[in-house]
Design a protein around this nucleic acid. Sequence first.
DNA 1: AAGTGGTCTAGACCACTAT
DNA 2: TAGTGGTCTAGACCACTTT
Lengths: 245, 245
Amino acid sequence: MEQAEQIDSESYEPAYSQLVNILRRQIAAGLFRPANVLPSEAELCRRYKISPMTVRRAINILIDQEVVSTVQGRGTFVKPPELGNATFNLRNFKALFTDKKETTVNLLEVRIVSACQDVADELNIAPGERTIFLRRLILKNGEPIIYHKESLIYDPGRPIVEAEMEVTSLLGLLVGARESYFKKGKVDLIASVLNEEEAALLHAPPNLPAFRLEHVFYDFDDNPVSWGRFICRGDHLRFSTMVGI
Amino acid sequence: MEQAEQIDSESYEPAYSQLVNILRRQIAAGLFRPANVLPSEAELCRRYKISPMTVRRAINILIDQEVVSTVQGRGTFVKPPELGNATFNLRNFKALFTDKKETTVNLLEVRIVSACQDVADELNIAPGERTIFLRRLILKNGEPIIYHKESLIYDPGRPIVEAEMEVTSLLGLLVGARESYFKKGKVDLIASVLNEEEAALLHAPPNLPAFRLEHVFYDFDDNPVSWGRFICRGDHLRFSTMVGI
DNA sequence: AAGTGGTCTAGACCACTAT
DNA sequence: TAGTGGTCTAGACCACTTT
C-alpha cells in the first residue's frame, strides 16, 4: 500500500513532529477525508514503530491545530475546515514596526494631564487625576502609517512611567523585549474610519477605512496602567489566515 | 513556604492540567515575574510527586499559551505579555449566527452567471465561465446585520453545488457541521465602509465603518471552489482578546 | 561535572464505545 | 469482550549551559 513514509529515528526532527507532518500530508492528499477515521493509535504505533506516548503527542498537536478531533472509545476523525475557527494574529501589524531601517517613531506629544471622564473610566481612577498622555506617529519609509495615542497612570513610584516615556518603549509593548511590569493586557480590534485629525496626521483622506486597535495593560494587582489605541490605515493593513490544511 | 497546593491524583482533572493551573496561578499572583526562572522540571517532579513526562506536558502547554518560554540548558522563563502576539478569533462573529431563534438567513438571489474578471481571477477560471452567484442577508431579531455574497464554481458533477444552494449550508461554512468537500480555506479581514448597496440592505448609513471578511475555499485538488465576502456592520462586531494571564 | 530542557520507551491502568 | 482514546510512570539518553 501507500505506506512508504517511515519515521527516521536518526533525524534531527523529533519523531512526534515527523508523524504530525506525515499525517498532515496524508490528509492534505485526500487519503483521509473529513469525517473519515484515522488509523487507531495502536495501529500507528505498529506502522511507524514508535511508542504510544509519541503517537499521542502527535495526535494532540493535530487536535489543537484543529485538523482532527477525537472521541474516546470511537476514534480520531478528520475535521472539515471551518471558517468559524479562523484566527488572526498581529504578525502583519508587527511587521510594520520591526524593520528598524524602514520604520521610525515620532513622539508628537508627552504631557501630564488631568484625566477626562473616559480615560478615568478606562484606567479606573477618578476624573481629574493626573495621567501621562502620549501621542506617537509611526512612519515607514518616511510615510506615516500608524497613529498611536496612549494614557498612562501617573505614579512617581512606578518605574514604568519613566521607561514608557521613551519612544523605543513602544516596541516593548509589541514584542515584550524587556522585563515587564504588566501581567496581562486586553486587546480589541474595531472597524473605524479616519477622523479629521487622524487623516491629517496620516496624510490620508478623512473617512478612509481604518482599523482601531485598542489596548489596556494591567499590573500584577490587576489595576489598569496603560490605555491606548493604534489607528491604522485600512489600505496598509489586512489580516489573513488559513483554515484546514 | 507557599507550597500549599498539591496535585490530587484522585481528581477528575488530569495531573498535567492541574500543574498548568497551579503554575498559572503562581505567575498571576506575581510569585514568578517576567524574566524570572521557574523551578526546574526535576524540582517540579519532586514538589508535586509526578513524573518528568507529566511535568513536561504541562510546560509545553504553558509554552504554547505564550506564558513561558524555555532555553535548553538554562531554564524556563516567564514571558511578559506582548501586544504583538494577541490573536483574534471569530467567536463573536459566529455568535451572530448560532442562536437559531434570533437569527434568520434570507436568500436574496441565486443565479447562474458568467464570471466577470475579478471572480474569474479568484476562482482561477476563464472569464465568462459559468458560476453560481448567491447573495444572502443575515438578520438578528429581524434586523439585518450581515450581508454575504458568494461565487461558486458551477460544475454539475460536483455535489457541493447543490448543497450550497440551500440557505442552511451557510452554517456549514462557519461551523463545518457536515462532511466537507473543502480541504482548506483562506480568510482575510479587511477594514471597510458600507457602500450604497450595502448600506441600504443593512439599514445603515453609507460610510459606516464595517468589517469585510473574505473567504476562498479550496477542494482536495487545491482548486478554488468558493469565493465570497461577509460585510458586517462595524457597530455590531468587535474582536477582543487577552494577552498574558 | 553538574544542572537544565527535550525526546523517547514499554508498558500499565482507566474510561468509553461498539458488538 | 475487544477495540478505542487518555493518562501516567520511572527511568534512559541526548544536547546544551553554567561553573
